[in-house]
Every structure is written in structure tokens, then in C-alpha cells.
């Protein structure tokens, strides 16, 4: 078990540009999208051994998109949240498929729902939506006049 300060120090030593947010239940680490892969590889293989990615999703905060990764470890059970901002125009980020295999399906879901492209993903295709579906339904500016889901 590492204390919160030890974890922060350790993460600083891997990626010096990160910032922290401790208002929530778990430690939130906001990392630059270009450094995400580096940090995630270190968290998985380094002394933290974060082997369990239990939630991967994306949030549309209107000005940009935020990728949210919930990590935990089956040994010491400490959880943490990693966030990386993706711009609405560029919308691409490195895949984590080769670190956690569960990321494969979860990233495909984010790809079709938010339009985020995952670089180096082995099989980036639609999973749930049909092939000719237009638009990205979970974005806040998505409008579908035929299948109304807003109340």
C-alpha cells in the first residue's frame, strides 16, 4: 500500500506534466494525451501493478472531450482515475489495447459513440451501431429527429 503522497510523487517521476484533483472519491490524475501511453505502461508494469482497468469511457464537456480511465489493482485494491483531454477537432489518442485487453471492446464503443480515434488499435470498427449510422450519439450536440430520445 502506498499513501496518496507517495503515489503522487511516483507519478510525478514518470510524467512531470501531470496535475492532480483530489476532490472526488479517488485520486484523479489529469495527463496530457501524448503522455498517456507512457504513464499507463508505467502504472501497469511498474511498482503500482494496476492490472485491472474496470471502466473506460469518454465525457463530452462541450469545449473538448475527456477520456476517463478507472484503474484498480487486484493485489492492493487501490483505485485511481486517469483523465486525458482530447480536442474536438483532433480527437485521437493512443490505444491501451496492448496493456489491458478489455480496452479493445471499450475503445471500440467510445470510437462509435464519441468519434474518438484510437491510434494503433488492431481492429477499430463499429461494435454496436449499424455501419451506415450517421453521427456520434453520445456527443452533446447530436440531434436525431427520427428517434427522439430527449424528453
Amino acid at each position: 500500500m502506498m499513501t496518496q503522497d507517495e503515489i503522487k510523487e511516483y507519478i510525478f517521476s514518470i510524467a512531470p506534466t501531470v496535475s492532480f484533483d483530489e476532490t472526488g472519491e479517488w485520486l484523479n490524475i489529469i495527463v496530457d494525451a501524448t503522455q498517456l501511453k507512457l504513464l499507463m505502461t508505467a502504472l501497469r508494469t511498474g511498482k503500482m501493478q494496476m492490472d485491472y482497468l474496470f471502466c473506460l469511457t469518454c465525457v463530452d464537456v462541450k469545449t473538448h472531450l475527456t477520456m476517463v480511465y478507472h484503474l484498480s489493482a487486484t493485489t492492493h485494491r487501490q483505485s485511481m482515475v486517469i483523465k486525458a483531454n482530447v480536442s474536438r477537432e483532433q480527437h485521437s489518442i493512443e490505444t491501451l489495447c496492448d496493456i489491458w485487453r478489455t480496452a479493445d471492446f471499450l475503445e471500440r464503443e467510445v470510437f462509435e459513440m464519441f468519434g474518438v480515434t484510437f491510434l494503433n488499435h488492431p481492429d477499430l470498427r463499429r461494435l454496436i451501431l449499424e455501419d451506415d449510422f450517421k453521427g456520434f450519439p453520445l456527443l452533446k450536440d447530436f440531434e436525431d429527429p427520427i428517434n427522439m430520445i430527449k424528453l
Binding site: D51, Y52, L53, F54, T74, W100, R101, T102
Partner: peptide, 10 residues
Amino acid sequence: LSAEDAISFG
């Protein structure tokens, strides 16, 4: 399914 794979696949 091995334990390692089970964790990796979530």
C-alpha cells in the same frame, strides 16, 4: 481462462 487473462479482460 487463466487468472491473468481474466483480470486483463476485465
